[in-house]
Amino acid sequence: MKQSTIIWTLLMVFGGLGLISVQLFRGKGEVYVREVPVEAKSSSKTSPEQTYRWSTYQEVSAKEKDDPGISFSYSRTLGLWVSAFCTLAIFSFLYGDNPLYKFTESVFVGVSAAYAMVVGFWTEIVTNLYAKLLPGMARMSFFPDMESDVQSDLLYLIPLVLSVLLLWRLAPKGNWIARWPLAFFIGATAGIRLISYLETDFIGQLQSTIMPFIVFTADGSLLWIKSLRNTVVIVGVTSCMVYFFFSVEHEGIVKYISRLGIWFLMITFGASFAYTVMGRIALLSARLDFLFNDWLGI
């Protein structure tokens, strides 16, 4: 049997076992909710008092399914199975590229682009542009809580114009005009980064490195471990910076110092690699936790 066939068979067996276990552990792979009734009274003081009623639903554990007020949630159970399907479909890429993966990947691209648009629209555009330019209309629609004496801030016409120019980039003609808002964006980024990076990452880091090579206690005795550690840090920073300094030929003493710098950098990258591995594995275990715990209930 071909190696790939064995792998595929194993995955199939695992998938099948998973589904069987869902059946065995009835109540798993199902979502139950508690109904929370909401009763809200009209906020208007002038119109006659009116009461509005609706319900929200709070997810509960399957153990509570027989308690009063708890019901089976079709939408959330469907959601759980859709989640499991999406997870397995993406994992199927490990076997090789396939239509199932491509389908879910396409869905992901569409959903994430729309998600970002919707969030940007409601949080920034409606709240910080629409409500600033048309406070009266904003009060009548989305923000009834807004003070009635708030006036339009016409200064916000500037970002509105810049935003329209930015979107002009999608037009077939005259899209060079999008350079104007882009220039604002680039200029602002350069302006705030220049100061912050110099203050925190240049001066701040140099300040943190300025420390004594030799450290004594109050009674004058040498703290040689602390002294050694300080020396390692100072030598490390200096040698790495010498390595980054390409304006002089790396020959003679400079060559040895820069080589020491490379070693420090290798240690840095080794530790970074280890931490990256740690992170990636944590992400995998969280996903498998979803499959085994939330979906299959093993």
Binding site: T200, Q205, S208, Y275
Partner: peptide, 25 residues
Amino acid sequence: CTGVQAPIMLPYIPDQLTGMLAAIK
């Protein structure tokens, strides 16, 4: 922060950052 970020944040401790939880550990 994530494991990827942890080494990047180290030089800020303790002068510019009080403390850090690095990755799942």
